[in-house]
Structure formats: C-alpha cells, structure tokens
Write a protein that binds this DNA or RNA. Structure first.
Length: 449
RNA sequence: GCCGCCAUCGUCUAGGGGACUAGGACGCUGCCCUCUCACGGCGGAAACCGGGGUUCGAAUCCCCGUGGCGGUACCA
C-alpha cells in the first residue's frame, strides 16, 4: 500500500488536513503491521504560485512532526515535477485528447446559457489559450472505500482545464500524474475533492492507467455545524499546540472524530489505532470538532504522564523552571498545560490579587482570628513537613470549635489569594515555613472588608 | 440554478432485517469520596429527520420530501 498526504501550503495545517494525514498514516502503518509493505508519501501541492510559500510549508512540516506523523518519502514539491507535467500535457495535445482554447469562465457560462445549464462546456481547438481535456460521452464511476460507487454523467462536466495558457499545469492534471508516477494505491483525502475525482479519472484513462482506490473523508465542522474555521477558536494544529494540548491526545481525539469500530474503547494508543483503523469504516457524514471532549481526553493523557515527564513538558511550554513540586500537586487538577499557571502560579508569583470576593469572605474578623491561631500552631513546627503541617491544621478546627472549612479556606486564601488551589497541606509544605508564615502574616495585616 | 455527498442522544459514535426495552464516550445531572477545585466510584435524563413502500418483521433495504454540506476557477 502506498498512500500520500498532499497539502497545499496556503496556511497553517488545518485540523481537517491533520486528520487526513493521520488517516493516511494509520492506514499505511496498519497495513505494514499486517505484513504488507507500505509507504506514506508527503507531497506539497504548491502549483498555486500565488499562495504557496516556504513559510507555510515549514509550518506544515512542523505540525506533522509535532503530531508524530513521519513520512517515508518527501516532502516532494509538486512544482519540481513541472517538466514531467508539461510533457504529459504535450502528449495529450499531440494525441488529440486535449486542445487549446481561449474560452474563459464567462465564455463557459455563456455556453451553458445557450446549451442548458446541465450541459457541460465543449470547446474546439483554437491553437492558443488554456489547455482543456476533451470529455468523452458516457459516465465515470468513482469507486470509494467509504461511500461505495458514485456515478457522474459526463454531459454535466465542463471540459476541464489542465494547464494555463502559459502551459503551467493545474491541480487535476498534476495530482493524477504525480499519483501515477509515485505509484499511489490509495488516495485518502477530503470530500471536497469528490467532484474533482472524475476529472482525474479522465487523466488516468487518457494515460491508460488504472486509477487508485479512493476514500473521500467527510469534512470537519465547527460546534455550530458550519465548516470549521478560525472563528471557531482553534482551527489549526499549531493553535492546538499553543493551547496546551498533548500531541498524543490530539491524535487519539482526531482518530475517533469520524471513525469508530465496534469496540467501545475510547483511550487508544497509537499502536492500537494502527491495528484497528479501517478507512472503510470512516463515517460518511461530517463530524463536529468539539474541544470539550479533547480537553477531557487531554486530561486523561496528562494524568497518565509521570511527574518528571509532565514537569519537563510544562517547563518547555511555559519557559519556566523549577516547577516540579507544583506540578506534582497540580497534576490531577489540570486538563491542559494552560490550566497550570492559573492554578499554581501563586507558588511563584505570590498570592493572587484579583479575587476580592475570596478575601471578603474568608479574611473577615473570624477568618483572621483563625489565621492567627494557624500561624501560632505552624510557627513552632520543626521540621515543617507535609505530615506535620497536615496534623497541625487538622487539629485546629476541634481546638477552635469551628468547621474544618473555616480553618482551611482562610489559610488557602492567605497562601493562594483565591479559593481554588492544590491541597492546602501540600501547598504550605511546598511553600516552606518562612513563606507560609509570611503570607499568613500578610493576610492578617491586610484584611478583606 | 446545475452536479454530487450525507442524515442514530446536545456532541463523537456502535449498529449492516429479528440479539434494540437502540450500546459506549464527552457534556449535563443525582449520590459517594472530600480542606477548595479537581480526580475517582456508583446511578439518571437524553437519539433512530418526516412520509410512503418492501417484508411475517425495519434504525438497518427502496422511493419521495425536508434539512445540512461540498463542487460548479487559466485555486488546491
């Protein structure tokens, strides 16, 4: 099996593109596991000279690497094959299968007004202008692994332009030729290409080649059911990375977005995905990209990481060091990298100052009295260990004849400046005796209302 | 307009004529755990787009309708 991912470098790697890449990759690696020699080819579809830039290519390669989607061949620039494409075009011209015409899009429209909207444009050779392929009579059948056969009546198809007036090849010609030359066996790509496929079939048949197997993946939509785009938040792989997601979670989520097998497992390793994935079982309908489930999945993967591993990644993501202690006691409370700092930043930046409500509620007169008692009890501890802190604070409610919460929350607000934090004993132990006492003193000195 | 694809809980899906009182997951929700928030555990509500067929029997097959989406470039 030989598959390819062929993005056009017109921007960042879109999530839909990443999913297409993943499905190709899983298909190839899965087949390889079953003993079938398989390759995943990366080709850059850069024949659109206006929009294709080296920066965009770089972005796409970065994103694929981040996701762990490695390729066996490439990246191959489609433009680098231009000579070959021109040669094919010449050949088709010589054999009378293609012709030159100066007809423009407007002319095509005019032709249809005259011949009926359901009659495709048919031109004649004018010796100059763009190069179009003659569409024969009959019908073309796309054999699709996901949706079965789709039949297109040739009369509806305009003679497709395969090269510009200057001879530069266009997408439908270049794709087919490159897939033939690269001996691609399975073309797995977006459903937006479904209506292009008959045109490519024409090229295959003009060249006397057997077409590959096709699989047209349904498109991805945003939460509102509209085509996924920037305004839905994260729409590209780099945005997901920046938002603090783990690549392994993104892979798992994407794999299950539009595909599922009879097994009800949700958490699937790369290996399991490769073993189980079957492109024929991809759903036929579009799927909505919903970040909620990705968040949950990401939390699962995050918690499965060792403290060292998570610390390492978090330090890379935040550019800070010395996070291990805070990471250890925050791990079960965060779902993405981005959740970390809002939760644990107070260890490093001091208590939060933007939660007046918490101060008002817990640092009132009663609260500060409790804090004073806590300060006295903690002040004599030596060593200031987690066990000692916990034992000391746990004894306080009974001594003061108040509810546990009335001790723990004021302490929490004193240390963190807010009512949400990692465990209070762990937090105090991590801050250490001096800092803990300093923060409690500060809270007693500057009360709420 | 024309061509084409699609349609199961709010979301992602399982289902390929009887095993369906339609299963799982996220989310929502009740309880438990509990120093906050989470995590975790145990429950709950929640769907076959509509109408015709075919059949002893349809979520599953066919037709029509409706709705969504894609294409309709000398873009990819």
């Amino acid at each position: 099996m030989r598959v390819r991912f062929a993005p056009s470098p017109t921007g960042a790697l879109h999530i839909g593109g990443a999913r297409a890449a993943l499905y190709n990759h899983l298909a190839a690696r899965g087949a390889a596991r079953r003993g079938e020699p398989s390759q995943f080819v990366l080709r850059i579809e850069d024949t659109d000279r206006e929009r294709s830039t080296p920066e965009n290519v770089e972005q796409i390669l970065d994103a694929l690497q981040w996701l762990g989607l490695d390729w066996d061949e490439g990246p191959i620039s489609q433009v680098s094959h231009e000579a070959r494409h021109r040669e094919v075009v010449e050949d088709l011209l010589t054999r009378g299968l293609a012709y030159r015409t100066t007809a423009t899009a407007d002319d095509v429209r005019a032709y249809k007004d005259e011949h009926g909207a359901d009659k495709g444009f048919r031109g004649t050779d004018q010796g100059e202008g763009a190069i179009r392929l003659h569409v024969p009579e009959g019908e073309l059948v796309v054999h699709d692994l996901i949706r079965g056969d789709t039949t297109f009546q040739n009369v509806h198809m305009d003679d497709p332009v395969i090269a510009r007036a200057d001879g530069s090849p266009l997408y439908n010609l270049a794709v087919a030729v490159d897939d033939i030359d690269a001996e691609i066996t399975h073309v797995i790509h977006g459903e937006d290409h479904l209506s292009n496929t008959p045109k490519q079939l024409l090229v295959y048949s003009a060249l006397g080649k057997e077409p590959p197997l096709f699989a047209h993946l349904p498109l991805l939509h945003g939460p509102d059911g509209k085509k996924l785009s920037k305004r839905h938040g994260a729409a590209s792989v780099q945005e997901l990375r920046d938002a603090g997601y783990l690549p392994e979670a993104v892979i798992n989520y994407l794999a299950l977005l539009g595909w599922g097998d009879s097994d009800d497992e949700t958490i699937l390793s790369r290996e399991e995905l490769e073993e189980r994935f079957d492109v024929g079982k991809v759903t036929k309908h579009p799927a909505r990209f919903d970040e909620t489930k990705l968040r949950w999945l990401n939390g699962k993967y995050l918690r499965a990481l060792s403290v060292d591993e998570l610390t390492d990644r978090l330090e890379q993501h935040t550019g800070r060091t010395g996070l291990r202690g805070a990471v250890e006691i925050s791990q079960e409370k965060i779902s993405t990298f981005h959740d970390f700092w809002p939760l644990a930043g107070f260890f490093f930046d001091g208590p939060k100052t933007d939660d007046q409500k918490a101060r008002d509620q817990w640092l009132d007169d009663d609260g500060r009295k409790t804090l004073a008692a806590a300060r006295d009890a903690l002040g004599v501890l030596d060593p200031f260990s987690l066990e000692a802190v916990e034992q000391t604070l746990r004894e306080l409610p009974a001594t003061l004849e108040v509810k546990p919460k009335q001790v723990f929350q004021p302490v929490r607000v004193a240390l963190a400046g807010t009512t949400v934090s990692p465990g209070i004993f762990e937090s105090a132990a991590l801050l250490g005796k001096d800092e803990t006492l300093r923060r409690i003193d500060a809270a007693i000195a500057s009360p709420g209302t």
